[in-house]
C-alpha cells in the first residue's frame, strides 16, 4: 500500500494546494480515489505482506515478519542472471526499435504523410495474430534454415522489437504532433542548419518526453512478457518471467518476493522517467 500511494499522496496536495480548489470537490475526489486505490493496492499489499512474512497459514495476519525471502532471492545467482537476461533482451529490443522507428516516424510525419497511413496498419499486425500462433510461425521460420535463431536471445529481441513497435510509433508520432516539427525544421534550415543538424538540435530535444514515454511504456510491457519468451527460447535463455514460472512451486513467499521486487523496480524506473521537469509539456497546450 505504502509503495503505491506514497508518491501520489505527496505529489497531489502539493500540486492542488496553490490552486485552492473548492473543499467539496476535493472531498469527492478523495472519496473516489481511496476505494480505487485500495482495490488496486490490496492484492499488491497482500503479496508484499506474504513476501515479508515468516509463515502465513490459518491466521488472519502472518505469524511474523522477516526479510529472509527477499534476502534469499537477491542472493540467488540464478535470479540475478535471469534478471540480467531480461534487462539485456528488453534494453536491446528498445534500443533497436528506437533507432528503427524514430527516423521512420519523423519522415512519416514530415515528408511522407502517406507512409503514416501504412505504418498505422503495419504496427497493428503483431497484435492481429495471437502470440501463441505467431510464435509457432517464428519457430518454423527460424528453427533451421539460413537463420537458425530459435533458442538464442536474438530471436526474442527481434520479436520484442515488433511488439514494441506500436507503443513506440504512436508515442513518437504524438510527440511530433505536439509541436510544429515541419516548421521548426524549415526555420532551422533557413538559419543555416543542415537537415541533420536541425534534426539533432531542434527536433530531438523537443521529442524527449515522447521518447521517454515510448521507452517506459514498452519496457514495462516487455519485461513482463512470458508467452514469446517461453515458446521461442524457453529454458535455454531463462528470462525473469520464465524463472518465475520455473520456481513457482518452490515457495509462495519466494515468488512473492520476486513479484514485489519486479514491481518496485518498474515503479522506481517509471517514477524516474516521469518525475523530471519537462520543457515541452507546457508548449503542448499552446498555439
Amino acid at each position: 500500500m505504502s509503495l503505491i500511494t506514497e508518491p501520489r499522496s505527496t505529489a497531489m496536495p502539493a500540486r492542488d494546494g496553490p490552486t485552492t480548489s473548492p473543499a467539496r470537490r476535493l472531498r469527492l475526489h478523495v472519496w473516489i480515489a481511496i476505494p480505487v486505490f485500495t482495490a488496486l493496492a490490496l492484492p499488491l499489499l497482500a503479496t508484499l505482506l506474504y513476501a515479508v512474512s515468516t509463515r502465513w497459514g490459518a491466521t488472519l495476519l502472518p505469524d511474523g515478519l522477516t526479510l529472509e525471502w527477499l534476502a534469499r532471492l537477491w542472493s540467488t545467482p540464478r535470479f540475478i542472471a535471469a534478471f540480467g537476461r531480461s534487462l539485456f533482451v528488453v534494453a536491446g529490443a528498445l534500443m533497436l526499435s528506437l533507432v528503427l522507428i524514430l527516423p521512420v516516424a519523423f519522415l512519416a510525419h514530415t515528408r511522407y504523410p502517406r507512409l503514416d497511413r501504412w505504418m498505422n496498419v503495419l504496427i497493428l499486425a503483431p497484435f492481429a495474430v495471437p502470440p501463441v500462433v505467431s510464435s509457432v510461425g517464428l519457430l518454423q521460420l527460424y528453427a533451421g534454415g539460413p537463420l537458425p535463431l530459435v533458442g538464442t536471445p536474438w530471436i526474442l529481441m527481434l520479436t520484442y522489437v515488433s511488439i514494441a513497435l506500436p507503443f513506440m510509433y504512436r508515442s513518437l508520432i504524438n510527440s511530433l504532433r505536439s509541436f510544429e516539427a515541419n516548421e521548426l525544421m524549415e526555420a532551422a534550415q533557413l538559419l543555416g542548419a543542415s537537415p541533420l543538424t536541425a534534426f539533432f538540435n531542434v527536433i530531438l530535444p523537443n521529442m524527449r518526453l515522447g521518447i521517454r514515454i515510448a521507452i517506459f511504456l514498452s519496457f514495462s510491457f516487455l519485461i513482463g512478457e512470458f508467452v514469446f519468451a517461453n515458446m521461442l527460447v524457453g529454458t535455454r535463455f531463462e528470462t525473469l518471467q520464465i524463472y518465475l514460472f520455473n520456481v513457482r512451486r518452490e515457495s509462495g513467499h519466494f515468488t512473492s518476493a520476486l513479484v514485489i521486487t519486479l514491481f518496485v523496480f518498474i515503479l522506481i524506473l517509471t517514477w524516474l522517467g516521469n518525475g523530471r521537469g519537462e520543457i515541452t509539456a507546457p508548449e503542448a497546450g499552446d498555439t
Partner: peptide, 19 residues
C-alpha cells in the same frame, strides 16, 4: 538549399524552438 541562400524568413506561427 535554404541554408545557403542568405535569406531570412518569419513564419505566421513563429516557429520558435521551444526547447
Amino acid at each position: 538549399p535554404p541554408q545557403k541562400r542568405g535569406i531570412g524568413m518569419v513564419f505566421q506561427h513563429y516557429a520558435l524552438f521551444p526547447n
